[in-house]
Amino acid sequence: MAQRTVLIVLFEDVQSLDVTGPMEVFTGADRFAEAAGGAYRVRTASLDGGPVRSSSGLTLVPDSALAGAPEPHTLLVPGGSGTRIPDPVLVDWLREHGPRAERLVSVCTGAVLLAEAGLLDGRRATTHWAYCDSLARRHPKVTVEPDPIYVRDGNVATSAGVTAGIDLSLALVEEDLGREAALAVARHLVVFLRRPGNQAQFSAQLSVQTAAREPLREVQHWITEHPGADLSVQALAARARLSPRHFARAFQAETGTTPGRYVERVRVEHARRLLEDTADGVEEISRACGYGTPEAMRRAFLKALGTAPAEYRRRFHPAH
């Protein structure tokens, strides 16, 4: 088996987990494939070959300078506070060498460096939720998708904040070596294999604002705790002691989303947890989450996650 070189770029104030998370995945996969001659050769490099200090204070010592690094199959650019003012020399290096890689990957705000180098122009991409708006404003040629934990567009893959880099790396290992290898690495790291790329970065509660008025805030909490209940606008308005029209208008004004969309996200999230953590059947889960029928839940999953409930469960628990 031919080894693929994975080159991870280091720079001052890099996010250490953006580096070490993917490293653990690829080196773990290499150990899995050891009998077949290995699968990955993971290398790190900084501009001058010198140590860099991560944003958490951890010092990382690269294998070499970028100028002396091997030609990579996968070029991985991590994020961190060091991307806030991109190093023009590093951006120039990426602009020249990025297109040569068979696969270009970023974790978190590493997408900012790829965008500065023009490598995301005309492509779909994501980054840490806190920087999606600024990335879109600064680089209008990039189609920024703020919700997914990672986005694939051709040979370019970008991921959201920090741990999403592990999800993306596992997806790449599965693509390269198959599901068995990726599952072995995920089990060793005690992480799920694997969150779908279009899974939202946030839970339903974190994805919207908390209502300022107590009756609306209480309704938000009640929805989360009772996903299988009657969550129609009429029923929720009655709980808030408001008319349906007034409730719908006030809910959207204070949370930034409609009651229907909020309910939909809560139900999908609850169903996901039941699929992940229990052995309950799809029909039972669909009733518990207020869908009524498995087909209704299937449609909701396809819309929100791009995968059916049975496939979602299989990816988390292949034995089920």
Rank of each mutant, 00 (worst) to 15 (best):
Y150C: 01
R245I: 10
E214S: 07
G281S: 11
R100D: 01
P70R: 08
A279Q: 15
R261A: 15
E96F: 08
R313C: 15
P294Y: 09
S46D: 06
G50Y: 04
L17M: 14
D13G: 01
L90K: 14
G161W: 01
P51D: 07
R138K: 11
G292Q: 11
T158F: 11
L177G: 02
T5E: 04
G281V: 11
A250V: 11
T278V: 15
M23W: 02
A200C: 04
V185W: 00
S16F: 14
K303R: 15
L120H: 01
P62D: 07
L216A: 10
R265N: 12
T224K: 02
L120K: 01
I285T: 01
A160G: 02
T258Q: 08
R249L: 13
A296G: 07
T59K: 11
A115R: 05
R239V: 02
H188E: 14
S106K: 10
A111W: 01
G306T: 10
E102L: 04
L7V: 08
E214H: 08
L94G: 07
R194I: 03
A204M: 07
H139G: 06
H73I: 00
A279W: 13
H317C: 06
P86Y: 02
L135F: 12
L90G: 07
P309R: 11
P244F: 03
R314Q: 13
L114A: 09
A115Y: 11
T109R: 05
T258W: 11
A184Q: 10
A229I: 03
E218D: 15
V191P: 06
E284W: 04
V266T: 09
F247C: 12
Q252V: 03
E283S: 14
E225L: 14
T307K: 06
P215F: 15
R272Y: 03
V61I: 15
A204L: 06
